[in-house]
Each structure stands twice: as structure tokens, then as C-alpha cells.
């Protein structure tokens, strides 16, 4: 598609460079994971049972924090006008922004998630599945987070609003991913949960750009 590549490269450069980019998201992630033993107690067996779930939940929160201003900056400095008048439709613009965010912040977090889980005492056998879940779930987190960011355009206290809009939408992928990880740890069939997670991510990628574009048009009007 015309213009998509140009825009994607720029969005990736912005997402990678913005306030430390992936490093900052990783640092936040490390902080949450480190706080857990302080809050939940140090008993190794309890930590081990919580580990995959916490690694997974912290991922959703880290994604959310870095997404809050995905459209706000462009809206404030006028870049959104320019993006709306380009060769690609706003739907493609929104998809490019979310995809770039996922590659710059979501993918590094997906790499860190299995390491964090194992550090908390999860069995190393869960690492590959956690990585795949984090990668696929991260896509859903990026696209749905982008939807929240677009809907909150122009509102004061946008950050809280984004969280309130987005966290309910994060519930299904969190449930599916945690279910698959639980099943794997318990020696049960786990492919069902993973497939549901993949399906949810695919639906988010297909549908949320339409809503993001509509929200941006509404904010510009």
C-alpha cells in the first residue's frame, strides 16, 4: 500500500526513540515483577505458582502505559492533519502506528516475559509458550490500546480514560493466555487457550483500525 512503508518506518523510529522507548517499557516491567515478591511474600512455591500469571498481567500493564499518547501527540502538533491527507486511509495509518508500537515495545517485552517468569520460579518448560502468548497477546494489547488512545483524543485526563476503556478489552486475552499457561503447567492440553488468544488478536487487528480511524476523524472534526 502506498505510503504505508514510509509511515511505518517513521512511527517505528518515534516509538523506538520516544523517552527511552523499549528500555523504559522493559524497566517498568522489571519493576512490577520485582515488586511482586515484596507484596506477595517470598515463599518460593507460592511465587512459582503465581509467576506466569504475573508476568502475563504485567505485560498488559506495560503495554497500556506506553500506548496512552499514541495519537495525542499527533493530534496536538498537527501531524494528524497531515496523516489524514496522505495517500493511505486513516485505517491504514492507525494500523501502522499500532504495528510500529508493537514492534518497538511489545516484541522486546515478549522477549523479557519468559525470563521474568523463570526468575520468579516458573518452570523453564513454560518459556516457549509464554513467549508465543506474549508475542500474540502483545499485538492485541497494542491494537486495543490504540483504540483507547484514539477514543480519548482531546479529553483531559486521557491516561485514566484510556485505562478504563482498554482494561475490559484486555480481559479476554489475559484469560486465554493465563488459561493456556495454567494448562501447560498442570500437564493438560493447552492448545485451545492459545488458539483462542490468536483468534482474539486477529480480530483486534482486523477490527480496531476501523474504530480508531472513526475516532480520529471525529476528533479532527
Amino acid at each position: 500500500m502506498r505510503g504505508f512503508g514510509v509511515l511505518f518506518r517513521r512511527e517505528f523510529a518515534l516509538a523506538w526513540g520516544r523517552g527511552g522507548g523499549p528500555l523504559l517499557a522493559l524497566a517498568f516491567y522489571a519493576c512490577v515483577v520485582t515488586l511482586l515478591p515484596l507484596a506477595a511474600g517470598r515463599a518460593p512455591e507460592r511465587l512459582a505458582s503465581l509467576a506466569p500469571g504475573i508476568a502475563w498481567l504485567a505485560l498488559a500493564l506495560a503495554a497500556l502505559l506506553s500506548l496512552e499518547r499514541l495519537f495525542e501527540r499527533d493530534f496536538e502538533d498537527g501531524a494528524l492533519d497531515l496523516l489524514a491527507l496522505g495517500p493511505a486511509p486513516l485505517e491504514a495509518v492507525a494500523a501502522a502506528k499500532c504495528l510500529a508500537h508493537w514492534l518497538a515495545a511489545g516484541a522486546p517485552l515478549a522477549l523479557a516475559a519468559p525470563i521474568a517468569a523463570v526468575a520468579l520460579g516458573a518452570s523453564p518448560a513454560t518459556m516457549p509458550l509464554l513467549f508465543v502468548c506474549a508475542l500474540a497477546g502483545g499485538l492485541a494489547f497494542s491494537f486495543l490500546g490504540g483504540l483507547g488512545a484514539a477514543l480519548s483524543l482531546g479529553s483531559k485526563r486521557g491516561g485514566l480514560l484510556v485505562a478504563v476503556i482498554v482494561l475490559p478489552l484486555y480481559a479476554p486475552p489475559v484469560i486465554f493466555g493465563a488459561g493456556a499457561l495454567d494448562a501447560l503447567a498442570g500437564g493438560l492440553p493447552w492448545t485451545g487457550g492459545l488458539l483462542f488468544l490468536l483468534a482474539y488478536s486477529a480480530a483486534a487487528i482486523a477490527l480496531s483500525p476501523l474504530a480508531m480511524a472513526a475516532a480520529c476523524r471525529n476528533a479532527l472534526d
Binding site: 505510503g3 514510509v6 509511515l7 517513521r10 523510529a13 518515534l14 526513540g17 520516544r18 501527540r73 499527533d74 496536538e76 502538533d77 498537527g78 501531524a79 494528524l80 492533519d81 497531515l82 496523516l83 491527507l85 496522505g86 495517500p87
Partner: peptide
Amino acid sequence: HLAGHHDGLKTARTAWEELLFQTRWT
């Protein structure tokens, strides 16, 4: 072309990076 009050230039990027993006995008 619409050139408004707000120029859409990202403050953390260099003038050339931004000009090149705006040029290619349009």
C-alpha cells in the same frame, strides 16, 4: 496541501528527517 498553524513537526527529530517524511508521505 494544507499548511496550518500547527506544523506537525516532531520536536525530537531532526528537520531533515521530518521534511523527508512529510515529502515522501505526500
